[in-house]
């Protein structure tokens, strides 16, 4: 899905939460937004998700103005993985994965049983599906939430029309789970899904991004394609730390070292 943000601002009272943001998120790429705490990364994601209407400017999902789309309609084509979801009452893992069917509950076209089986297998969570959600570790729980989100996204069907948003999806998780979850997102990108992520971990961002977005003080400062040479000055300016950037000899991906 193509996402276009045009001169968009978000205000609460007289405070700007987002100020004059313009960006084009092309489909089939992993777009990663980085920036210091309070830069407005999550607010931007919330506006693109359709849960907060922009105060001015426009957001288009596949050329349709987001203000003209209902939450029901948006939920059919985009899904969001947030960080850590707490559930107050005991529930089973499989029932939580099934919640991804919600926006498609009246659809007779989708074979949900089959879709859910496939997703459980590709995430290798067969052994978890009959357990109580509350008994899972943080990493396991996040994989279950990812499964639910993938059921909602239903990327098997016209993946280039789909949008996946990741809002700090791997914070506080062990490296093993961070890699697993980000790699799943990468597979979707390869199938044509647009993925927009908010990360505060710049290592992970460099590992997975096709396009990097630097935010600071509620503004989008720079956009940088990772095909180009990444400039240390950018990171130094945004994060106010001294860094050196190298290129890994085998993966050819950039990595940073804090000086």
């Amino acid at each position: 899905m193509m996402v276009v943000v045009q001169n968009m601002s978000l205000q609460s009272g007289t405070n700007y939460r987002l100020r004059d943001i313009s960006a084009t998120f092309e489909s089939g790429k992993h777009h990663i937004i980085v920036g210091p705490n309070g830069a407005g990364k999550s607010s931007l994601l919330q506006v693109i998700a359709g849960s907060i209407p922009p105060s001015s400017g426009n957001v288009y999902l596949n050329e349709q103005d987001i203000n003209n789309l209902s939450v029901e309609k948006i939920a059919i084509q985009r899904a969001i993985l947030s960080q850590q979801i707490h559930i107050a009452f005991p529930m089973k893992v499989l029932d939580i994965i099934h919640m991804g069917r919600y926006p498609h509950k009246n659809s007779e076209v989708i074979d949900h049983e089959n879709l859910i089986d496939q997703i459980i297998q590709s995430l290798q969570i067969q052994s978890l599906q009959h357990r109580w959600y509350q008994s899972l570790s943080g990493g396991e729980a996040q994989k279950v939430q990812l499964a639910r989100v993938l059921v909602q996204l239903n990327a098997a069907e016209s993946p280039d029309q789909k949008l996946l948003l990741l809002d700090e999806p791997v914070s506080h998780l062990d490296p093993q789970y961070q890699q697993e979850i980000m790699r799943q997102a990468q597979q979707l990108v390869e199938r044509g899904v647009t993925v927009i992520s908010v990360l505060h971990d710049i290592y992970l961002a460099l590992q997975f991004a096709d396009q990097l977005y630097f935010m600071k003080n509620n503004r989008l400062l720079y956009t940088q394609s990772l095909k180009e040479q990444l400039l240390p000055e950018l990171i130094e300016k945004v994060f106010e730390v001294q860094v050196e950037i190298g290129v890994h000899p085998i993966t050819k991906r950039p990595f940073i070292i804090y000086l």
Partner: peptide, 10 residues
């Protein structure tokens, strides 16, 4: 799942 997530699900 919480109100925020429920809205995400439409």
């Amino acid at each position: 799942l919480g109100e925020k997530e429920a809205v995400y699900l439409g």
